[in-house]
């Protein structure tokens, strides 16, 4: 039996990927099983899905703790989640990243293969939907499932044009990955196990919480795009601030020297005809992104009346 764990983010189709793998394996004549980590996660939050492949009927119902393969749909997950937890000694990790295997931040002793699935998906599918591309990559890297069956399962799920472009993306990833070679696992000094991640704070009598404690969840790492502010053009209307569902735009009032400098700069801009007089009065108000929490929804950019906010692809 082979076990595959898929790490993704809500909305990236991790569960669909796990299911398509299972369907493809079934097409190959195997028994298979796909299931999500049942949770309440919304778009962008880290999610996990699992697939098992076997020549015999699969009875095991537990989650996968010692995967043979790991697929990481989003390289930002490497720092947020222990993606290689329990990986078998000769296991393979496939990471969606334009970086080289050495640079994605995983243990050097592990067989890591990277593929720019986002790039391939944008080029062929036209949208950054990477799950089908990564399935092709999985078939290429591991040989556990035939690319034909992958294609069949994708077409069955997404008939028509959409399925076809997804199949093309999978095929391209398959070719790229089939050309890679097995890297022998190096025995590295056992990584010091991170001092238990979970805290052992005592629970109260009932599930009663303290105010605002959600702030430990850094939702900024869900982001694919981030807003870039052009403060020189900014009229200080405050729409970005007021329309942020995540309170991730900070309204800051400059004082003293800082405020004077901002006013001076604004006056120059007004003279140059770039901003209106009203904006000069509010020059001491600054809007800043709080990257810790911004999920990159783009509402601020869409609502900015002067198009002074641009959404930029997050460097991953």
């Amino acid at each position: 039996m082979k076990e595959i764990r898929i790490h993704g983010r809500g909305g990236q189709g991790s569960v669909t990927a796990a299911e398509l793998l299972a369907v493809a394996a079934f097409e190959d004549g195997k028994y298979s099983q796909a299931f999500p980590f049942f949770g309440v996660e919304r778009r962008g939050a880290p999610v996990t899905a699992f697939t098992r492949l076997s020549d015999k009927k699969i009875r095991l119902r537990s989650q996968i703790y010692e995967p043979d393969y790991v697929i990481v749909q989003d390289a930002t997950l490497v720092s947020a989640v222990d993606v290689t937890a329990g990986l078998k000694p000769d296991g393979i990790v496939i990471v969606n990243s334009e970086k080289s295997a050495e640079d994605v931040g995983l243990n050097a002793g592990i067989d890591v293969r990277t593929i720019d699935a986002t790039g391939i998906a944008l080029e062929i599918i036209g949208r950054p939907i990477v799950n089908t591309t990564l399935l092709g990559a999985f078939a290429g890297a591991t040989g556990e499932i035939s690319i034909e069956s992958i294609k069949q399962s994708v077409l069955a799920r997404f008939p028509g044009k959409i399925g076809e472009v997804n199949v093309q993306a999978a095929e391209k990833a398959y070719q790229l990955m089939a050309a890679t070679e097995r890297k022998p696992h190096k025995k590295t000094r056992a990584r010091k196990k991170e001092a238990a991640r979970e805290s052992y704070e005592k629970i109260p009598t009932a599930a009663i919480g303290k105010p605002g404690t959600s702030e430990v969840t850094e939702t900024g790492d869900w982001r694919i795009f981030y807003p870039e502010f052009d403060m020189e053009q900014c009229t200080r209307c405050g729409k970005c601030f007021e329309n942020c569902p995540d309170a991730a735009i900070i309204e800051r009032t400059l004082r003293g020297k800082e405020a004077d400098e901002a006013r001076k700069r604004a006056e120059e801009l007004e003279k140059a005809g770039k901003i209106k007089k009203a904006a000069v009065k509010k020059a001491h108000i600054q809007y800043e992104l709080d990257p810790t929490y911004c999920k990159g929804c783009g509402i601020c950019a869409n609502e900015c009346p002067i198009q002074g906010i641009k959404m930029k692809l997050e460097e991953k």
Binding site: G10, G11, V40, E41, R42, R43, G44, A45, P211, G212, T213, S214, E215, V216, T217, E218, T219, W222, R223, N243, C244, P245, D246, A247, A248, D290, T292, Y293, K295, G296, C297, G298, I299
Partner: peptide
């Protein structure tokens, strides 16, 4: 409504609560 809540990006309801 503190940051770090797990609403989807661009959630109209979360913004309503804010």
């Amino acid at each position: 409504l503190a940051s770090g809540h797990r609403a989807c990006a661009g959630c109209g309801a979360a913004l309503t609560i804010q």
